[in-house]
C-alpha cells in the first residue's frame, strides 16, 4: 500500500517524463498556471501517464474535479 508521499513521488516522475524536465519540482498546490508547458495537450498525456503508472482508469468527470496536483493525488489514493 502506497502512502501519499509515494504517490506524490511517482506523480512527480510522471510530470518530469511528460514535460521532459528532469529537474521539475511539483507542489500539491500547483495547477497548470504554475508549471510551464502544462497545457491542455500535456494535461492529456499526464493523465495517460498517471493511469499507466498506477494501473488505474479514471472517469472524465473525476478528472474535471482536479483543481490542483493535490486533488490529483487524492483521487489516485482513493482508487
Amino acid at each position: 500500500m502506497m502512502n501519499r508521499t509515494d504517490v506524490f513521488n511517482k506523480v512527480q516522475e510522471d510530470f518530469r517524463e511528460v514535460l521532459e524536465d528532469e529537474e521539475l519540482i511539483i507542489i500539491e498546490d500547483y495547477n497548470s498556471e504554475d508549471i510551464d508547458d502544462w497545457d491542455s495537450l500535456t494535461h492529456i498525456m499526464l493523465v495517460v501517464e498517471i493511469e499507466k503508472t498506477f494501473n488505474m482508469r479514471f472517469l472524465s468527470s473525476e478528472i474535471s474535479n482536479w483543481k490542483d496536483i493535490g486533488a490529483m493525488i487524492t483521487a489516485i489514493e482513493s482508487k
Partner: peptide, 11 residues
C-alpha cells in the same frame, strides 16, 4: 496497447 477513455486517448 492502451485505451484511456477519460481523456479519449488510444496508444
Amino acid at each position: 496497447s492502451g485505451i484511456f477513455s477519460s481523456v479519449g486517448v488510444i496508444e
